[in-house]
Design a protein around this nucleic acid. Structure first.
Lengths: 282, 282
DNA sequence: AATAAAAACGCATAATACTGCAAATAAAAT
DNA sequence: ATTTTATTTGCAGTATTATGCGTTTTTATT
């Protein structure tokens, strides 16, 4: 079961007990006291190699108490060298993707929007999160204690959500668009047709009170239509800069949106044109 | 330096006590007084050689008080020549790989493996790339001019592939495993059943010439089975450290693998046990 | 809801670390 | 040569750390 520990299989025996229960291994007949750092290094090694370890396995193979291993793992977790989980530890994925790559345009506004959107989330809810930087910001700001099931098409959003322990992430697969880093194509649309979420949080390329939501890209429109269809309620996240802009292909009318969130106060004059519609402004 | 020695030799011959308990070592039957610097150099040597020392060991073998050693080590730590830890010291490089966040364990070996794997790729081919750091490395090293269609379950791999302009990336969707950052579950398996790729490049948790490929995790096994089924040829990427290790759940026999790539030369003795099988070693 | 496993907590103990100090002596100054 | 000053070392006492153990609390699973 643990051949990979052969190196230290021939440990102890008549082991001189060092410290208080610390074990020693015999190499060339010399008792070697194992430093905490060495033990931790071994743990990291295991994790790096197999992606996961069990505390009990480590404790047994190193012949230390499980408490010690637990403390080690806790410490390593604190140092961000691995992730402690119930019963063991797993390697940190390479969550570096979550680290903001480029700088996000108008981050402040988008954060404000995301914060408002989060107020709509309910414990145990099932939601969809679209791609785009605003939605990514939403994903990033979801409280860690909130339990949610999140569908998404966006690789960055998926990554971000994975960092939250209480969120089930379901990725809608398909051909990946290089630009937007989201699944596109018929397969993704088909899959969307098979789900129903409480809320979907979507972005848009352009929005106009008269023409509704429009996009530059035909494929994206098809996708967004599918998303809206799969949602009990649709929430549009949109910075005010995009208001009253249009493009070629139409996703839907304003009426198809239940709630629109901008970084503005809901009573801001810029939003006046939208008040004729059956839409909630946040 | 010599100067000191002579002085000391003289003193010792006359039986005069040196310092207050300063120790001496005998070389060629002549007691040589050891300077602090020399002692420290010895400690550094020891650390360089074994990556670690125990204060008690040093104190005993050099016959100085542990306080002296402690002070030496403290000083060397201050000079950044080693790292002082409870009970001893470790070399600086010792803990380094874990500290470099996001750095891949045994990267060099994995790169070597990936390079071999890339030689199997053909222009216009359709392949599957598994998750795991070795496969990620493969994804990373794919030449940019190569045109490929790549299926994957792994978010990091998908990201990596998106950076290549000539690669179509198709992500197999599903519930995302937080640990492995890959799609898991029935949906992913079902989708795999609908594709057929020329080559799949997979990793494994454990591999043994007798027991075949095994995993810690049942879900992963199901997934890998589906991958193998969806492949005309399956290539196992596996660093030699994993050879002859096993775990609970079995993915497949060695025979189910067409090619196994390790960082070793194909004629390395460590691979002997695999030669009985119908498997190509690279 | 019941149960088993794991984690957390507090405690005891042994090993180790630190501090101040005095002895020895090397190096410098006289 | 002698005195002074600074350095090195060991020692004793105290503080801190590492570890295992038993108990309680939490978590996951059935």
């Amino acid at each position: 079961m643990r051949f990979y520990y052969k190196k230290i299989e021939y440990k102890i025996k008549n082991g001189k007990k060092l410290h208080n229960g610390l074990f020693s291994i015999f190499v060339n007949s010399i008792a070697i006291f194992m430093l905490k750092e060495e033990r931790q290094q071994l743990i990291l090694n295991e994790v790096a190699l197999h992606n996961r370890v069990l505390l009990t396995d480590i404790a047994e193979s190193l012949d230390v108490s499980i408490d010690t291993v637990r403390r080690d793992v806790k410490e390593l977790d604190g140092e961000n060298k691995l992730k402690k989980v119930h019963g063991g530890a797993v390697s940190l994925g390479f969550t570096s993707y979550g680290a903001r790559n480029g700088t996000i345009y108008a981050l402040e506004e988008k954060t404000k929007i995301a914060e408002k959107a989060i107020r709509l989330l309910k414990q145990g809810g099932v939601i969809f999160i679209d791609g785009g930087t605003t939605c990514l910001e939403l994903a990033r700001l979801i409280p860690t204690n909130l339990e949610l099931t999140c569908f998404t098409l966006s690789l960055p959003v998926a990554f971000e959500l994975l960092a939250k322990p209480n969120i089930d992430v379901i990725f809608i697969g398909g051909k990946i668009s290089r630009d937007a880093q989201i699944s596109i194509g018929s397969h993704a649309i088909h899959q969307l047709s098979e789900i129903k979420v409480d809320y979907s949080f979507i972005g848009t390329g352009y929005v106009d009170s008269l023409y509704g939501l429009t996009e530059f890209d035909w494929d994206i429109v098809q996708l967004k239509k599918a998303v809206i269809k799969a949602s009990k309620k649709t929430v549009l996240l949109c910075i005010s800069e995009k208001l009253n802009s249009q493009h070629r292909y139409k996703t839907c009318d304003i009426n198809a949106i239940n709630t629109m969130i901008t970084e503005l106060e809901p009573d801001n004059n810029l939003l006046n044109l939208f008040r004729n519609h059956d839409i909630r402004l946040l």
